[in-house]
Design a protein around this nucleic acid. Structure first.
Lengths: 204, 204
DNA sequence: CTTTGATTAGTCGCACTGCAACTAGTAGCA
DNA sequence: TGCTACTAGTTGCAGTGCGACTAATCAAAG
């Protein structure tokens, strides 16, 4: 059986591993969503669209990584089906976690791809958009740092993922600033004619 | 008509925009893949699995962003169908590019999610995996910098996306190093008992 | 002289994700 | 009484990722 990894599946197994760790044993999907949101983990796990969560859980169930417990209800609230880790699920979860930590995986975000085609736009158009991005990134960094500070009250251990987001977002912001500088100073500039000349000199 | 954006679709439209820009007018899928690879754009566009490329092009065709030209062949090589931008495609391409540059988009890579669940593993296990990641990231940074230097021979304009990859990868590496330091010094440490105590003090 | 492997060009199926809308009951409140 | 919010889960559709497949040409190796 090939068990495909995904961010969401990793989060689900992690929550079930935690439930087990704390001797609670099981958890139902809706509660997972709430818990992730309440802890601010929705910054790193896409838990906004619930459809994906239920489908992912269904898949983990089908492939035997998790087991359904008897469904029940709390008070008058709707019925729910809690799940728990299977032995296989526990094994696979550890494997996934360790590999995700040890090995950087190639992903393909949109921004670097767009950067690669910047020469096809006009320099001043690019400048305008990067100024806008700088503004938004500045706000985003402030937001992340505030969440980071909040989490850090429990110790650095609990702020690690926000630290990571902060580090990479700030790196992006630095890059954007430096490109803005060169566009404003003219250190980076181009015209259609120059590009055409370059292209013809660099055939194929 | 709703036109959904994707990294691959943006790359396809960009290549067709370039072909137009250079008065070549059209390009066929296989050539797009080759071109992206030969220029090193496969670092930022996932062009390794050709299935996705053909499907994406098919979608762009269906939705009217690109038009099929008469299919032909070069010498004895297999037949191919070249495509060109439609008016709508040109408009949408500009819109996508400008928005992709101006607005950071939330994506959900696996690593930060895994970080969020680190406390469920043992500290020394985590340390081991992060040491491994540090090694791989160091190699990766070296690789990126070599590609970056190569591209930079044509001017900074043509090394921008590698610069970006370098900046964010180095930021990740710094973060990893600093966590390794704290794990080795004991500044970050935890035991199951401490976590259980924390969890019970922070109910729900 | 033939087999092997690389290159060119494209196709197909399946499993998965993302987005959005939908059901349906409960609870608070004005 | 009607409005809104919360709890819990479902469904459809369009899209992506991955891998395997066809099929022809050409060069080199044996």
């Amino acid at each position: 059986m090939l068990h495909r990894r995904s961010t969401l599946a990793l989060a689900v197994l992690s929550l079930l591993a935690e439930a087990e760790y704390l001797h609670q044993g099981s958890m139902h999907p809706y509660r997972m969503q709430r818990l992730l949101r309440d802890r601010g983990k929705d910054e790193v796990v896409n838990v906004g669209q619930r459809g994906s969560l239920y489908r992912t859980i269904d898949r983990l169930h089908r492939t035997g990584l998790i087991e359904a417990r008897e469904s029940g209800r709390d008070g008058n609230r709707p019925e729910h089906t809690p799940y728990s880790l299977s032995d296989e699920g526990r094994r696979v979860w550890r494997e996934w976690m360790l590999d995700a930590l040890a090995t950087p995986t190639r992903e393909y975000p949109e921004f670097p791809a767009a950067i690669a085609f910047i020469p096809l736009l006009d320099p001043d158009e690019v400048l305008g958009r990067l100024l806008e991005r700088r503004r938004k990134l500045t706000d985003e960094v402030a937001r992340i740092q505030s969440l980071m500070a909040e989490s850090a009250e429990w110790g650095r251990l609990f702020a690690l993922e926000m630290e990571y987001l902060n580090a990479t977002t700030e790196a992006e912001l630095h890059w954007v600033r430096s490109v803005i500088d060169d566009l404003e100073s003219g250190a980076i500039s181009w015209t259609p004619e120059q590009l055409a000349a370059l292209a013809s000199r660099h055939p194929q």
